[in-house]
Design a protein around this nucleic acid. Structure first.
Length: 487
DNA sequence: AGCACA
C-alpha cells in the first residue's frame, strides 16, 4: 500500500516556499525565471544556474501558498511550465529558504570589475575598453590597473541594469581581435560587480577616464614625455622632475619601514607622504615632498647611498610620475603626514602590539625595529585576485578614491608596468590617477623611539644604526621571503 | 530531469 500510493509522489517533498526547478535552458536568466514564477506570487529570492549544467534554479515565494499554487497548477495543467521552449520541472525544494550564495562580485551594481585575462596592461587601451563597453550604455568612468590577477578595469555605468547587461553579454567573451595588438592571443573578459558606486577619477590619462568630466585635468607629469622609464635595478633615466621620489631599495638586509624612510628623507624638508610597496620582488617607496626643489635636493644627496652601513639598503632614487600620492594615512606600508595622527595616543601603549608577529622580542637598548627583516610581504590581507568585498578596507572617500570595496586596485603606479601601446590614447600618457592602496594593517606609530637610525652629522643625512641594530643577521643572509607578489 | 558553498 505504501509503495503504490507513494508512486506518483516519490519525488515530491513536503511543501516549501522554495521551489526547485530543473531542466531549465542553460544559463537561464533570473529574468526568465521570474517571468515564469511571478504569476503565482511574490518572489523574495532566486538562485539561478545551479548545478553542473547550470540548468536548475530555486525560487522562493513570500508565502507558502504561492509556492503550492504554482506546483499544483502545473501538476494538473496540460501545458507544462516552459522556458525557451523547454519543459521545466517544478517541485518543492527540500530547503525552506534560499541561502544567498552570491559572492560579492555577483551583487549587481553600476560598476563592473573587469579582468582582462592574458594581456599586458598596454595591450588593451582604455579606448578599446571604452569602445567595447559603450555598446551597452553610457560609460561614465573607467579606471584601469594592473595586478597579479591581471589587467583589470573598473567600468562605471549609469545603473546596475546597464552594467548587468554588459556583464551578461561580455563575461567570458573576448575582445575582438582586430581591436588588439597582433601578438595578443586570447583575452577573455572576466566580469563581476564592483562594490564601488562612483569612481573617483583624478586625471584623464591612459589609465583612467572620466567621460562625464571632459574638463578634468590631464595628468601633466605624464605629458612631459614618454615616461616609459623602466627603472632598472639601478636605473635612473631622464624622468621629468617631480616632488615625489621613487626609491628602490637594494640589498635590503634590514627592515625599511615608513618611519625609517621618514627619518631619512625628512632631512631635506617636510615629507608629506610615504608609500612602500613591492615591485618585482624589490622594495620600493614613494616619498612625497611639497615641492620639486626639495625632492631634487633629496634625490641629489641620497642617490646611491645606503641607509645602513655595509652597503645595506642602498637607495636608488628617481622621480615618480606622481605628484600627489593617495595613501592610506596610517598603515605599516604608507603614511600621510598631512593628516593628524590619531594613533599618537595609542602609541603610549606597547609598541609591539601590532607589530609583525614574526618579529622577535625587542632588542634591549638599541634598535627595536630592526631585529629581523620584517617581511613586507606579509600581506595576506588583500589577495589581489580576490574580488571579495572587504569591509575593513572601506576608507575615507577622499583618500581612497577607487579602492573601497573590491580588490583594492593596487594601481599601476609602478613605472615598469606600462607598455607602449597606449599611444592611441588621445589624452595623456602614463598618468596614474589613482592612489596607492596598501594593506589594511593597523597603524604604525613611531616605533623607533630610540634605536632608529641616527643621523650622521656632516655626512649624508643617511642613517647609521648602532652596532646592535644589526643583530644576528649575517650579511648576505637570505633576502626577504615571500615578496615576489605584485608584478 | 533530480537540491545550492562558489
Amino acid at each position: 500500500m505504501s509503495t503504490s500510493s507513494q508512486h506518483q509522489f516519490r519525488y515530491t517533498q513536503t511543501p516549501s516556499k522554495v521551489l526547485h526547478l530543473r531542466n531549465l535552458p542553460w544559463e537561464c536568466s533570473e529574468e526568465e525565471l521570474r517571468e515564469l514564477c511571478k504569476p503565482f506570487g511574490k518572489i523574495v529570492n532566486t538562485k539561478c544556474n545551479v548545478g553542473a549544467n547550470r540548468n536548475q534554479a530555486f525560487v522562493e515565494f513570500v508565502d507558502l501558498n504561492q509556492a503550492i499554487s504554482m506546483v499544483s497548477y502545473y501538476a494538473s495543467s496540460s501545458e507544462p511550465a516552459m522556458v525557451r521552449g523547454k519543459t521545466v520541472y517544478i517541485q518543492y525544494s527540500n530547503r525552506h529558504e534560499i541561502v544567498n550564495n552570491k559572492s560579492p562580485g555577483d551583487i549587481p551594481g553600476n560598476v563592473l570589475l573587469v579582468t582582462i585575462e592574458g594581456v599586458e596592461a598596454g595591450d588593451v587601451s582604455i579606448d578599446v575598453i571604452h569602445l567595447v563597453f559603450s555598446a551597452f550604455g553610457f560609460v561614465h568612468k573607467i579606471a584601469t590597473f594592473e595586478k597579479t590577477a591581471g589587467f583589470q578595469a573598473l567600468i562605471q555605468f549609469t545603473d546596475a541594469e546597464t552594467a548587468s547587461a554588459a556583464r551578461d553579454a561580455l563575461d567570458g567573451r573576448s575582445i575582438p581581435r582586430y581591436l588588439l595588438p597582433a601578438h595578443v592571443g586570447s583575452c577573455n573578459l572576466r566580469i563581476s560587480y564592483s562594490a564601488h558606486k562612483d569612481l573617483n577619477i583624478k586625471f584623464q590619462s591612459n589609465r583612467s577616464r572620466d567621460y562625464t568630466n571632459p574638463m578634468l585635468p590631464v595628468n601633466y607629469t605624464a605629458i612631459e614625455g614618454t615616461v616609459q622609464t623602466a627603472i632598472g635595478p639601478d636605473g635612473k633615466r631622464k624622468e621629468p622632475e617631480s616632488n615625489v621620489l621613487l626609491a628602490s631599495i637594494e640589498n635590503m638586509q634590514y627592515a625599511v619601514t615608513v618611519d625609517v624612510l621618514h627619518t631619512v628623507f625628512s632631512a631635506f624638508g617636510t615629507v608629506q607622504k610615504i608609500a612602500i610597496f613591492e615591485k618585482n620582488g624589490q622594495t620600493q617607496a614613494l616619498i612625497q615632498y611639497p615641492d620639486v626643489i626639495t625632492a631634487a635636493a633629496a634625490r641629489e644627496a641620497l642617490e646611491g647611498h645606503c641607509i645602513y652601513d655595509g652597503g645595506y639598503c642602498k637607495l636608488h632614487l628617481s622621480y615618480s610620475r606622481h605628484t600627489d600620492l593617495n595613501v592610506k594615512a596610517f598603515s605599516d606600508k604608507s603614511r600621510d603626514y598631512t593628516v593628524p595622527d590619531p594613533s599618537l595616543l595609542a602609541a603610549q601603549g606597547p609598541v609591539t602590539a601590532w607589530q609583525n608577529p614574526q618579529a622577535a622580542p625587542m632588542y634591549p637598548g638599541s634598535a627595536p625595529g630592526y631585529h629581523t627583516q620584517v617581511p613586507g610581504g606579509q600581506v595576506p590581507s588583500w589577495d589581489p585576485s580576490l574580488q571579495a568585498v572587504r569591509p575593513s578596507y572601506i576608507s575615507a572617500p577622499g583618500t581612497f578614491p577607487v579602492q573601497t570595496g573590491t580588490v583594492p586596485p593596487m594601481p599601476s603606479y609602478a613605472p615598469a608596468a606600462s607598455s607602449p601601446h597606449a599611444q592611441s590614447s588621445p589624452i595623456g600618457h602614463n598618468a596614474n590617477p589613482m592612489g596607492i592602496s596598501q594593506s589594511g594593517v593597523p597603524p604604525n606609530v613611531n616605533l623607533q623611539p630610540s634605536g632608529a637610525p641616527l643621523s650622521v652629522p656632516g655626512s649624508s643625512p643617511l642613517m647609521q644604526t648602532s652596532q646592535a641594530a644589526q643583530p644576528n643577521a649575517r650579511p648576505g643572509a637570505a633576502s626577504p621571503p615571500g615578496q615576489h607578489y605584485y608584478a
